[in-house]
């Protein structure tokens, strides 16, 4: 049996307008049940406002559920201490790369998390170097963050979480503000962390080609999880996805329209199917 890392039990979240000025919109959640297993790569899909970002922020105790519980390794973060404990297990990377880098030098920023945890200086140095190497940013460790590209900044942010040695990284639309090159860099990094270091990944996104790379996909719509399963299982239901304001990848869509029964996930699968369909008759 796979080990549960994060468990959402009947979680609802309602945004209370208590006059507090918060420069963001919080989307509601309604009765969400979701298990996130150790070592998996889960993609949470949904259009803007579907509640996917709220789900992310519940994972490491930034928000508190109005109903139900979110537990991380069995810890329910109902006190500040426990919330801190949860944040040592689940790290977070946000959308805007500019607004999460704290220090004026790349390596100092990566050290920020471990420093907060009160780790020995020598150990921090080791972790920082390793983290920077694992995101391919070691050569640029002395740079100033504002001189980096978006993709590079995002990798620095990821390194900052890795250096804290969390079990899980939640990435809230990490590629939404990047160009195609930056997106590729970040996606490759995420893949590598999951496969090589065994870090649990929760990727919040609305890009279907990113979700294809995950082990498991959960689709959200108006605060609920409406579909769950492997990318192949989920992408088979194109009408339902369209209802959720999402698109199929072009190769999947093409095969669907051609009446090919199996769901394909990438271009090479698609080419193969088409060729076998034409029966080599051409």
């Amino acid at each position: 049996m796979k080990e549960k890392l994060i468990e959402f039990k009947n979680v609802s979240f309602a945004y209370e307008a208590d006059g507090e000025a918060v420069p963001e919109t919080k989307d509601a959640l309604k009765g969400v049940n979701l298990d996130i297993y150790k070592g998996e790569f889960l993609a949470v899909l949904g259009h803007n406002g579907s509640g996917k970002s709220t789900l992310a922020k519940l994972c490491n105790a930034i928000y508190e559920p109005t109903e139900g519980t979110v537990s991380v390794k069995g810890i329910i973060p109902d006190t500040e201490e426990k919330a801190d404990e949860v944040r040592r297990i689940v790290g977070m990377v946000f959308q805007n790369p500019d607004n999460q880098i704290v220090a004026t030098i790349v390596e100092d920023d990566v050290a920020f998390g471990p420093e907060n945890l009160g780790i020995e200086p020598k150990e921090i140095r080791k972790r920082v170097d390793e983290a920077l190497k694992s995101v391919n940013m070691y050569e640029l460790r002395h740079r100033e963050p504002h001189k980096l590209s978006g993709g590079q900044k995002q990798r620095v942010a990821i390194a900052g979480v890795i250096a804290m040695q969390t079990d899980c990284i939640v990435l809230d639309e990490p590629t939404a503000m990047l160009d195609p090159k930056g997106r590729d860099e970040v996606m490759q990094t995420i893949q590598r962390l999951n496969k090589e270091l065994g870090i649990t990944i929760v990727l919040i996104t609305h890009f279907m080609d990113e979700a294809v790379q995950a082990d498991r996909v959960a689709v959200m719509n108006s605060g609920r999880i409406v579909m769950q399963g492997s990318p192949r299982e989920v992408f088979a239901q194109n009408e339902k996805l369209n209802e959720c304001g999402l698109d199929l990848p072009q190769s999947t869509e093409l095969c669907k329209r051609l009446g090919i029964k199996d769901t394909v996930l990438n271009a090479s699968e698609c080419v193969e199917k088409i060729i076998s369909m034409l029966g080599g008759a051409v």
Binding site: E24, A111, E115, P121, R125
Partner: peptide, 26 residues
Amino acid sequence: FRRAYELALAMTCRCYTGGEGRTRMK
């Protein structure tokens, strides 16, 4: 203001609780 808010969130997520109990790499 938006940046400040997001930055504060990011710092909280990285377990920043002020100077107490902090170590320094350098």
